[in-house]
Amino acid sequence: MASSHNKDEKIIYVGDSRVPQKNHESVPRDYMAYPGKSEVFIPNFLLKEWMVASVFMVGFLVLILVDPAPLGEIADPTNAQFIPMPDWYFLFLYQMLKYPYLANKFVVFGTIVIPTIAFGALTLAPFLDTGKERRFYKRPISTGLMLLSIAAIIFLTNVSWMHYEEELEAKGLKPEKHATGGGKKKEEKMGVMAKDHPGFAVFKKATCVSCHGADMKGMSAAGIPALLGVGDKLDQAAIMNIIKNGSENKKMSAQYDSNINNGITPDEMNQLAEWLSKQKKTP
């Protein structure tokens, strides 16, 4: 058979279950079940679908060009100010957890029970709603439940978003949209300057270290500022003023006297202030 040179003869694999021996007549199947005009998938109908897709794609590309994808600052687990927000399509689930009976002791209702019932019921819809009727206005129960769920989703999402915006405003924050490119690198390169200055030795034995830290990075979570680069903002006199009288927002109390009592001389305190004023980001 395979040795046949007759071109018209089709090779037939006998006894091979993978290729059924069938005489295909490639005739389009009828859609007679549906009255009215039907049309062939390729090219007529697909052309219409692709036209819709083209319009959709142009809109999509315009959206992308108008609003670039956001990228916030690199994740910082110590950032206590940040308000966690899931992606918008999880907001309604997230919002549910803020209501009593769905939170705290009963949180399992909000996180597991309700979503499981909702998604479970939706998944099993064909087995719960077994009537023959397909028109939505003739199946009030399933339609009603669905409309109710949609209303609830829209309501919860909206409440959640409003709440988020209020919180942002209260904290005076703006959503991080774009990372401030070089900022991170500058901070990394910023270190303790002028380590051979006598003020550095004073800093290490004075009370400063207990809060601002030996690395001078402060504690952002507790509102204690870093001293790195402090010389950019304050001069020697202003630093001395804070050491003597405490900070303007009263978070830091006057430190001068207690250090003098600990055996640091006024001269050394001046060296300390002078050294701190030399802490600049840009040498």
């Binding site: 697909l46 052309l47 692709w50 036209m51 083209s54 142009v58």
Partner: peptide, 20 residues
């Protein structure tokens, strides 16, 4: 007509593929 549709389909498909 069929050929015209096929060409248009090809052009639309090309536009979609190119855009993406």
């Amino acid at each position: 007509r069929r050929q015209f549709l096929t060409y248009t389909l090809g052009a639309t498909g090309g536009f979609l593929a190119a855009g993406i």
